[in-house]
Amino acid sequence: MLKKLIVFLLIATLGYTLAVTLSSIPIGKNRIGSIENPETVAAYYLDKSPNDLKVANTITAVVVNFRGFDTLGEVSVLFLAATGLASILYRKEEEEEEENIRHISHRLNLPSSSLVQTGAKILFPLIIVLGIYVFIHGHLTPGGGFQGGAIIATGFLLMLVSYKGFETNHKVMVWLESLAGLGFVGVGVFGLVKYGSFLQNTGWTGNLNDLISGGLIPLIYIFVGIKVATELTNILDILLNIKPRKK
């Protein structure tokens, strides 16, 4: 009873504080200021992104260029989550609890209908192509490495739930993931060696709205896309195959 009261008081205080604070922030008001003489961060980004970097999608410019180091940390967090998930759910074959495994594998062994299987087979390559399109055009259209990677992972999820025997090639996945991560860091070190600061973009940027523009930004987003796709696929694979693999 006392716990309920304390929780209610806490929630009421939080809601009231948020409401009072937010009531002084008008919605839809222009807080950016002039773009030509930028005084806010947003105006600086909106000014630099099309004029200096030649990147059409300002959000990509912010995520990959202005806050590139932040994105490197974000990708590492995702990698740590995948590693932690694998190490927490990993178990040796002898420490199996029989009833649990039988329960899970019974459901996994039910074959999905041939309608689902045929549909998945047709949709799978199209989903992969859409994901690759999204992360290659990350600097031109909405989307980018994270979104494209998530789309590719949904394609693998479709195959994993449609075919009970479907397995991703672990060696290829690990190599792709490691190479993509190393590629991201390698681009950063390239900037450090050549221009004097980590993840520094090249001076050459091309034209606005060209596929090859923005210097190193498309390259970094392709690495991020591959890394996110393999990591999410690994997470889904681990969660769906709690039954350990036979060595």
Binding site: R31, I32, V41, A42, Y45, L46, S49, T58, I59, V62, V63, R67, D70, T71, E74, V77, L78, L80, A81, A82, G84, L85, I88, L89, G144, F146, V228, I235, L239
Partner: peptide
């Protein structure tokens, strides 16, 4: 404003990582 959208992009990914680890 592009800044909150870029931050939300980061926050979504971190939220996904937290959810996956918590569920495991």
């Amino acid at each position: 404003d592009p800044v909150p959208q870029a931050l939300v992009l980061t926050a979504i990914v971190i939220g996904f990582a937290v959810t996956a680890l918590a569920l495991s």
